[in-house]
């Protein structure tokens, strides 16, 4: 396993003549919680989907876990867990059935399948609701179950696309506790959000705006270098500068 979990160089994704991702470069080291911030339409999801091998890049290079996403998508998929922006478990399956399904699809070995299931149920706080239909779960539980299903195969690298959108503050807090646990266990967590306060939880962040990265670094570092009190001020100042530059 290389030192950097994710390496992106000159990445471009065009839809027609629209540049959704416009020459983006960054690195994420192992064990890091890397935040991807930016308003809607900035290109966060598009970047993540390229990194997960769901979209092919127009230009540039991206390596995940040392594998090229464009040519070694199979290996990439063995090494990642992905939670898409839209809730994507099966509503008509029971909690446990969703876990069993993804366990099978990820090829989790038979000997550890039960342990992994119990771990995920415990993590999501759903030990007593394993037989419930997934559609009956409230937002926070659904999100934790989705996270659990994405890490059944113990992937070293996790991509979470706005995992906390639309859940209440307490559930968000609980979710971030889980992210910390995973990072402490040595996993790399790549997480996108549009909540400003969540930026502070990340080791490093990239601020994305109109397909470009306009700021990159640790939150404290960014605040210090711009001499601004909060991340929110950092965002506003960087975005204003970007507007001036392109105007």
């Amino acid at each position: 396993m290389p030192e950097n979990a994710v390496e992106v160089r000159g990445l471009v994704k065009r839809f027609g003549d629209f540049h959704a991702v416009d020459d983006v470069s960054f690195e994420v080291s192992r064990g890091e919680i890397f935040g991807f911030l930016g308003p809607n339409g900035a290109g966060k999801s598009t970047t993540i989907r390229i990194l997960c091998g769901l979209l092919s890049p127009t230009a540039g290079e991206a390596r995940v876990g040392g594998y090229d996403v464009a040519t070694e998508a199979e290996q990439v998929k063995e090494n990642i867990g992905y939670m898409s922006q839209k809730f994507s478990l099966y509503d008509d399956l029971a909690v446990e059935e969703n876990i069993d399904f993804f366990s099978g699809v990820y090829g989790v070995r038979r000997e550890i399948r039960e342990t992994r299931k119990e771990y995920v149920l415990k993590m999501a706080g759903l030990e007593n609701r394993r037989g419930d239909m997934t559609r009956l779960l409230a937002g926070g539980w659904k999100q934790r179950l989705a996270l659990g299903c994405a890490i059944l195969h113990e992937p070293p690298i996790l991509f979470l696309d706005e995992p906390t959108s639309g859940v209440d503050p307490i559930a968000r807090r609980t979710f971030w506790d889980l992210i910390y646990q995973l990072a402490e266990a040595g996993n790399t967590v790549f997480v996108s959000t549009h909540y400003m306060d969540e930026a502070e939880y990340c080791h490093r962040i990239a601020l994305m705006y109109r397909g470009r990265i306009v700021a990159l670094g640790a939150p404290a570092e960014l605040k210090r270098s711009l001499n601004l009190p909060s991340m929110e001020d950092v965002f506003i100042s960087r975005i204003e500068e970007e507007e001036r530059r392109t105007a």
Partner: peptide, 13 residues
Amino acid sequence: ENGTMEQLLSTPL
């Protein structure tokens, strides 16, 4: 339509 395809495609399936 349900977005589950995206999830499936991110797996080795």
